[in-house]
Write a protein that binds this DNA or RNA. Structure first.
Length: 463
RNA sequence: GAGACAGUAGCUCAGUUGGUUAGAGCAUCGGAUUGUGGUUCCGAAGGUCGUGGGUUCGAGACCCAUUUGUCUCCCCA
């Protein structure tokens, strides 16, 4: 007999783990609702064509494809076709509707864009929605990386106002503040500054190369970035220009002022700088001084996804060695991929599995999360069992979460069960109690026990 | 796609340059104790040592292959 297992990179969530995850989900949901976002859910699977080509070459390889079923029902002609396609498939990274035409959701943004295009006539724009669902990636799992993980996304589509950016920054900072996550940095940058950067170093067509190299600054340092820039065909003068810009120091206002001077030769960069300035001003107006996170302009922030066009954001914590715990940005033409032009959107995503791992590692979950039933009724069988059931019904009618031990097992066994399940009270409805029309109520934290009437017990349990 | 490490009871792990019948803790079940748990004591059950081959008088240990998992690079949340 082989031991059961689950697929690599997936996890079961025990009752205690689910409660902790729900603690995060509920907190985020409340914030999203407070900011006027509406819930949305989309299918676990999408048509493959909806997803392919949206996440870059690397992303396409990481999409989980679903094998068509019902193959046994195919006619002979289809079977021949099938064999032919299989032969092609085995050779190279190739896919065909004969073999697969559906795939598991890779993120929440593309399905959202698809939804917006499909329902464009019903939606009141600007449309603000949040979505908390699992996504799947055929990546190699490692610390903080899973093949099935949840994203909590929050996007506004149909408005170019930077108020949206400012509000999303607030949502991030409010959420991490409420979760009490320490040493959080919300990094902000603009794709337009990166585009301007590539103009200034004389290689506007190399923007992707520059951003990819620059994104690794934290990991490989400036020397490593220099090396990578050279490999990607940036000349010495260009690298020097990049270095000047990267080395801009000071608070956000000081950085912006310096960038304005250094990058005055690029209209694009100046537009990006103005965007950040306005975003920060809006954010200042709606933010709360109590939020502990650091909101910092970081010119080296790049972000992988290629559809971002304006402001980009990424959230990290220095408290634990972990990749980013959230990210997002502005995409001017997301729905254009599905034929709807001039529909700008901006959104952020919370990586709640990583947030969970960080809170767990730092022991930051509230201790009172493990609730569940408050009281267990012991079972003495026969008429006592019937008596216990009548009490059980009365407790539940009074809104008290209660359970009865389903078998007339040994007293000791039932008590041990109550202890292990962390019940706060145990009710002992035995012969004596039943004869008196009362019950024994034992407080499992203090060990105290008292004989009371049912109404009085309900009073105690309700408080 | 590339690399490092690991796989022994349900779980976490010991296991001496290769030497009788492979151990512990926790969990489970039974008993001391058929109305009093969390902190008692006694006992029982539980193993093709991931799989296949090889070296050897002898392999849980050494070698090769394979598989699964963890981690790192790449990329990402």
């Amino acid at each position: 007999m082989s031991k059961p297992s689950i697929p690599q990179g997936t996890r079961d969530f025990s009752p205690a783990e689910v409660r902790k995850r729900q603690y995060i989900f509920n907190m985020l949901k409340n914030i999203f609702e407070l900011y006027g976002f509406q819930p949305l859910e989309t299918p676990a699977m999408e048509n493959l064509v909806t997803l392919t080509g949206k996440y870059g070459e690397e992303g396409d390889r990481l999409i989980f494809k679903i094998l068509n079923n019902g193959l046994h029902e195919k006619k002979d002609a289809d079977k021949a076709k099938l064999n032919e396609e299989w032969a092609k498939l085995l050779g190279k990274p190739y896919s065909t509707p004969v073999i697969t035409e559906r795939a598991l959701r890779y993120d929440l943004t593309i399905p959202f864009a698809r939804f917006v295009v499909m329902r464009q006539n019903d939606i009141a724009f600007p449309f603000r929605r949040y979505q908390m669902q699992p996504v799947w990636r055929a990546d190699r799992p490692q610390k903080g990386r899973y093949r099935e993980f949840w994203q909590c996304d929050c996007d506004v589509v149909g408005s170019t106002s930077l108020i949206n950016e400012a509000e999303l920054l607030s949502i991030y900072r409010e959420a991490f503040h409420q979760l009490k996550l320490p040493q959080v940095t919300v990094k902000i940058n603009s794709r337009k500054i990166l585009a301007g950067l590539s103009e200034l170093c004389g290689a506007p067509e190399k923007m992707m190369d520059i951003t990819i190299a620059l994104d690794k600054l934290d990991k490989i340092g400036w020397d490593g970035v220099t090396k990578e820039l050279l490999e990607r065909g940036i000349d010495e003068a260009g690298i020097e220009a990049i270095e000047t810009i990267i080395n801009v120091k000071g608070d956000n206002a000081e950085k912006l002022a310096q960038l304005k001077t250094i990058m005055s030769g690029s209209e694009t960069a100046l537009a990006g700088i103005a965007e950040l300035e306005q975003t920060l001003a809006y954010h200042e107006a709606i933010s709360n001084k109590a939020w502990a996170s650091d909101l910092r302009i970081d010119v080296s922030l790049a972000r992988g996804l290629n559809y971002y066009t304006g402001v980009i954001v990424e959230v990290t914590t220095d408290a634990v060695k972990m990749g980013s715990i959230g990210g997002g940005g502005r995409y001017d033409d997301l729905t254009g991929l599905f034929g709807l032009k001039n529909m700008s959107g901006v959104g952020v995503s919370f990586g709640i599995d990583r947030i969970y791992d960080v809170l767990e590692e730092l022991n930051l979950f509230p201790t009172a999360l493990e609730t569940g039933s408050k009281v267990l009724l012991l079972n003495f069988g026969g008429q006592n069992e019937a008596y216990a059931l009548s009490i059980l019904g009365q407790l539940r009618n009074a809104g008290i979460a209660a359970e009865v031990y389903p078998d007339a097992a040994k007293f000791d066994k039932q008590m041990k069960y109550a202890n292990k399940r962390n019940f706060r009270y145990v009710i002992i409805p035995g012969d004596d109690e039943r004869a008196a029309g009362k019950l024994s109520l034992k407080n499992f934290e203090t060990g105290e026990q008292q004989l009371t009437g049912i109404a009085e017990a309900i009073d105690i349990l309700s408080s």
